[in-house]
Simulated scan of single mutants.
Amino acid sequence: MTIRVVMADDENLIRSALKVLLPAEGDIQVVAEAATGEEALRQVQRHRPDAVILDLDMPEGDGIPTAHEILREDPGQAVLILTRHARPGTLRSALRAGVRGFLGKDTEPPVIASALQTLVEGGRHIDNELFVQAMISDSPLTEREQDVLECTLRGLTIAQMSDTLHLSAGTVRNYLSSAIQKTATQTRQDAASYARKKNWI
């Protein structure tokens, strides 16, 4: 079965290289390309691919928020995030979003092709070193505190966080207050920025 892929990366060279190299490694067809998160969403909705490759850092919606939107519409979608600057906190964010594939951009094309096959079959393919780092994180934040700070980075309001996380508005505020205290900041935006710098989210 041919694996139909939508590939999003703001670096044209990366997209061009993978478009040529991936089909040489397996029965893979890049059916559409995108340079931004918003464009990636449109291409996914248009082509309904078997798998989506997302660059972590893109304009108009980077990899994690874009993955959130894709997986909200189709929780079973195979999503592979590629990044040049991988951080344990980012990996945890991706996993919580439902992303099952996470690799560095220096990964060889045969490995990327194999990862796509695994994801389409319902499996998971995560860079081992990143996974170990994420598991031994020294973050003082609870999982729910990380969730509300990630929502803050995405620009969600309290009401939107409540709907997204299936929590009451009061509970969301409590988690935000706790996260602000633990990061010794003044606002939820500052707390989210601090946590991202520390690789906690």
Rank of each mutant, 00 (worst) to 15 (best):
M1F: 00
T2M: 09
V6H: 01
V6M: 09
D10R: 13
D10I: 08
E11H: 03
L13N: 13
R15W: 15
L18T: 01
V20C: 08
V20Q: 11
L21R: 10
E25F: 12
E25S: 10
G26A: 09
D27Y: 11
D27E: 10
D27M: 07
I28H: 01
I28W: 03
I28Q: 14
V30W: 11
V31T: 12
A34R: 11
L41A: 05
L41N: 05
L41W: 14
Q43V: 04
V44C: 08
H47W: 03
R48P: 10
D50C: 04
A51V: 10
A51N: 14
E60Y: 00
G61D: 09
G61E: 09
I64N: 05
P65Q: 00
P65V: 13
T66D: 03
E69H: 03
E69Q: 05
R72S: 04
G76F: 05
Q77W: 02
A78V: 02
A78Y: 12
V79H: 05
L80G: 05
L82N: 00
H85P: 12
P88K: 06
P88I: 09
G89W: 02
T90V: 14
A94W: 01
L95E: 13
R96F: 15
G98A: 10
G101D: 13
G104H: 04
G104N: 11
K105Q: 15
D106W: 06
V111H: 12
I112D: 11
A113Q: 01
S114C: 03
S114N: 05
L116G: 10
L119M: 12
G122L: 03
G123V: 14
G123S: 07
R124Q: 13
I126H: 04
N128V: 11
N128F: 12
F131G: 15
P140E: 09
T142R: 13
E143G: 03
E145S: 03
E145K: 00
Q146T: 08
L149D: 09
L156H: 03
T157S: 07
M161V: 06
S162T: 00
T164D: 05
L165T: 04
H166G: 15
S168V: 07
T171W: 03
V172T: 07
R173T: 14
L176T: 02
A179L: 04
I180A: 00
K182P: 06
T183F: 01
A184C: 12
T185G: 08
Q186L: 06
T187Q: 13
A191N: 11
S193Q: 06
S193A: 15
A195F: 00
K197S: 09
K198L: 07
W200P: 15
